[in-house]
Nucleic acid binder design. Structure first.
Length: 510
DNA sequence: TTGGAATGCCC
DNA sequence: CTTGTGG
DNA sequence: CCACAAGGGGCATTCCAA
């Protein structure tokens, strides 16, 4: 199949807003792909490379400028081979070599193909249809029911594998993808609610569990063999053997556990997330140890438990692991009891709680209302110091805000940026507002006179090696503009530091 | 040898 | 990771 | 409800250049 056909399809998809129309367009292309091309076509249309990222980023692409090819001769297989080559480069001279190979690939592409390949390499394809719609389209093109395809993806099959299986073998082949050991599955995700009462309304009778501020892990074990996977299914077994210990000690022939890995202090309290991230990201042999805390059991002694209710999975889990290897939990349908448990979790240094419906199955890869997280938030009134021009659907609007806290000694201290929480109306309003306050600008940023106050919500304050105050906000988002306040009334850097030291508690609800 | 830029991936 | 938009 | 797009901060690793 020619890349040009796929690129034309992408452009057509981008030009339509209806999901049904997008799916039909995608299905048309997938239907035209032969057995050898279906997997590649599905991946590329979904904006992903079968092998993941290959070491080509925005900066290296920026200075690769080659004349486009006059005619569209590239095939999907040719592109795949070229990308395979790029992915394989490492060692001294790798940057130049990757750049050279990238340039060679782009030189063989027409102008439209170059743009698409650049987005693909960056993992930044945006035509309003990614994996989910491509999966639907695959169903349309092959006649394989969508839930079979989705199920295969959830248990860890790659989109390329599923597409190839669907095209070559139809539904019966796709059904052969099952949850199995040492093939990581996609973890179940949680939605969120402002307080335990709202969460319980969504779930009904629930297991309320500590939300441990670490990194998600999935541990597979059979006999003496164990493996550890991340939320995105990367195999990190060699980096953290210690978190597999409870699985290896459990009395079972095989199992799959879901949980969180975190660095604990000597007092048993979780260390700041940055420490966990450091240990989680580093190779083995680091001084700090990761402690696993498990909250689910999805496979036991050869049996897939994902269809069983949480109550049963939790009971089996508690029979298998010692209490210290488990995330603390309480079963309740009382908002008061859940609120008290949340308070205790926060006192223990946890991030919040996750409220999980006791009767819900394990829905791999889904973010439904069966699991609901509750985290308290902080709020501050800060001052906008600058705003950056948006991209994509925010082109033409000032979007990303630079936030400053008032310095009692004079001036403002930048704490970070946010683009979240802004409606289209707010974007329109603030574009006009900040252009009126403009003091100077660069290509990307309009710096403004510091007088507009904005209410910002965030999860916490963390140390920053980048910002001048040495602190920054975690998950900052705009709550609204405060036209009733002047910059002189904005919150100070001292308050931010007090939050960082843990002297100011975040609030639940509202 | 070392500091910085780029990249990928955790939240 | 959070939020807003649109099908 | 689901999928997508808008982008945030930090850390470890890798490779380049001074």
């Amino acid at each position: 199949m020619l890349l040009a056909d796929l690129v034309a399809c992408s452009a057509a998809v981008a030009s339509k807003s209806s999901r049904r129309v997008k799916v039909d367009l995608l299905a048309g292309l997938l239907g035209a792909a032969g057995p050898g091309d279906a997997g590649l076509a599905a991946c590329y249309l979904a904006g992903v490379l079968p092998q993941g990222r290959v070491g080509v980023g925005w900066a290296s692409l920026r200075d690769v400028r080659v004349d486009p090819a006059p005619s569209p001769d590239l095939t999907l297989a040719g592109v795949a081979a070229a990308i395979e080559g790029i992915a394989g480069v490492s060692g001294a001279g790798a940057e130049a070599e990757r750049r050279e190979r990238t340039a060679a690939l782009l030189a063989a592409a027409t102008s439209a193909e170059q743009d698409f390949l650049a987005s693909l390499l960056l993992g930044d394809v945006r035509h309003g249809a990614l994996e989910a719609l491509v999966t639907d389209a695959l169903g349309v093109a092959t006649g394989v029911p969508g839930d079979h395809l989705r199920r295969a993806l959830m248990v860890g099959a790659g989109l390329d594998e599923v597409a190839d299986a669907a095209v070559a073998g139809g539904a019966s082949r796709v059904r052969r993808f099952r949850l199995r050991l040492f093939r990581p599955m996609r973890p179940m995700l949680a939605s969120s609610a402002p307080d335990p009462g709202a969460a319980l309304e969504a779930t009904g009778a629930a297991s309320v569990e500590h939300k441990v501020d670490g990194a998600r892990i999935q541990v597979h074990r059979r006999g003496r063999r164990a493996a550890v996977y991340t939320r995105n299914l990367a195999d990190v077994t060699g980096r953290m053997e210690e978190v597999a210990a409870p699985a290896l000690a459990a009395r079972a022939s095989s199992l799959i556990l879901d949980g969180e890995a975190v660095v604990l202090g000597d007092d048993g309290r979780p260390r700041p997330f940055q420490e966990t991230a450091g240990r989680f990201g580093s190779a083995a042999g680091a001084a700090e140890r990761l402690t696993p805390r498990f909250f689910d059991l999805v496979y036991l002694d050869g049996e897939d438990l994902t269809g069983r209710p949480l109550a049963e999975r939790r009971r089996l889990l508690e029979g298998l692991l010692p209490a210290e290897a488990l995330v603390p939990s309480v079963a309740t349908s009382s908002p008061e009891e859940a609120a008290a448990f949340l308070g205790a979790a926060l006192d223990a240094g946890q991030e919040g709680v996750v409220v999980k419906a006791l009767d819900a199955p394990y829905r791999a890869g889904r973010r439904g209302s069966a699991w609901v997280k509750v985290k308290p938030v902080h709020t501050l009134d800060l001052v906008v110091l600058a705003a950056e021009w948006g991209y994509g659907r925010r082109t033409g609007w000032l979007s990303n805000l630079h936030l400053g806290a008032r310095d009692p000694g004079g001036g403002f201290v930048m704490l970070g940026k946010t683009f979240k929480g802004l409606t289209d109306d707010m974007l329109r309003w603030q574009t006009e507002r900040f252009l009126a306050l403009e003091e100077r600008r660069t290509r990307s940023t309009v710096h403004v006179h510091p007088e507009q106050v904005v209410e910002v919500a965030f999860d916490g304050v963390q140390a920053s090696p980048r910002y001048p105050g040495g602190v920054t906000l975690r998950f900052a988002r705009v709550r609204g503009y405060r036209d009733d306040k002047t910059a002189a009334e904005a919150d100070t850097i001292d308050t931010v530091r007090a939050i960082h030291r843990g002297e100011i508690r975040p609030t639940v609800g509202g």
